[in-house]
Write a protein that binds this DNA or RNA. Structure first.
Lengths: 173, 173
DNA sequence: GGGTACATGTAATCAGTTACATGATTTA
DNA sequence: TAAATCATGTAACTGATTACATGTACCC
């Protein structure tokens, strides 16, 4: 039975600290912004607030510099590692949510005017192409990337390609 | 310049009322749960709270029954229709978020134990198959479905098929 | 040595979730 | 007529977002 107060954000933090070793909120921010943040984003302020919560819950240990920036570095406690492992061991059945404003607008397209949907599609194609390019850059730049993380990236690549194809058809109609 | 206090949820409500005509929160709930709620979900309580907010903003008009259940029926005001149209007319560049706990767990798969990832993949395959079946049922049951809504559903179908293929490869590794 | 980008936080607000509660219909 | 399910809300909490604020390092 997992501690109920833990949100997905909590596990992202635990997972990052576990994966990359002791790190600061800023380290997490950077890691997130080039990886899992593409799928599940949150503002950097949470990467400052959430670790503190986890410290209170005994899942992270905090070590604050005495001098200079007084950075806080976090690392997993045994309890934290256990919580993370337990979470990883338990498959989910919660379904995917594809949160995309463009899709929302498309859904209500019948109420739009003139070329709205067409322009929407064009913008979406652009956005997905950019995103695809970013993913490709990461894929060939970060060669040494951990295997599961690369697999996740692979999902992203496929999604972007599929999205481009989809919106191109919408634009063509 | 769109009113800043409006969230995606607001537009979903406006869009639903616009698309289906005057309706109650419960009507919205039903509509959501078989359509856009698959992509962007929220609890029914919001479908009660949000319309009231929109009434205060002058975007919806409320008509409450005097007797019995005292149901509140909402419909668009002119301002509401304008706000919706303006929103639809403005393409987004906010990128998709694919929120999926299974993907999150996969991402941190290096820290998992034994057959965790395999079980995760199997569960995901199951979940996506179920979801695909639901989409297919909607697609051939609701024939008269509006064109843009059907297109959105088409995206869902593609995503689920791609997800199944993806997780099958993960399981195979 | 002044600007700019990087780094590191805090505060306030509020949307969104969870949980509770109960009335009205249908069905067994 | 009891149970189950459908329908309709409200209350409380809190995670998440927005906005503010400032420190540090580097570069021109």
């Amino acid at each position: 039975m997992a501690t109920p107060t833990l949100t997905p954000t909590s596990y992202v933090v635990l997972g990052l600290v576990g994966a990359f070793g002791p790190c600061t909120s800023y380290d997490m921010k950077r890691a997130v912004s080039s990886s899992i943040g593409y799928f599940w984003s949150f503002p950097h302020s949470q990467l400052y607030a959430e670790p503190m919560r986890l410290v209170e819950l005994g899942l992270l240990r905090e070590d604050q510099e005495r001098t200079g920036r007084r950075r806080r570095t976090y690392e997993l406690t045994d309890a934290g590692r256990d919580a993370l492992r337990a979470w990883l061991a338990e498959p989910t059945d919660e379904p995917t949510e594809i949160r995309d404003l463009a899709v929302l607008k498309l859904f209500f397209g019948a109420q739009a005017t003139g070329g709205d949907v067409r322009r929407l599609a064009d913008a979406a194609i652009e956005a997905h192409r950019r995103r695809l390019a970013e993913y490709e850059a990461i894929a060939d730049h970060d060669q040494g990337i951990e295997r599961h993380m690369r697999t996740t990236l692979e999902l992203g690549l496929r999604y972007e390609r599929a999205a481009i194809a989809f919106w191109e058809e919408v634009a063509k109609e």
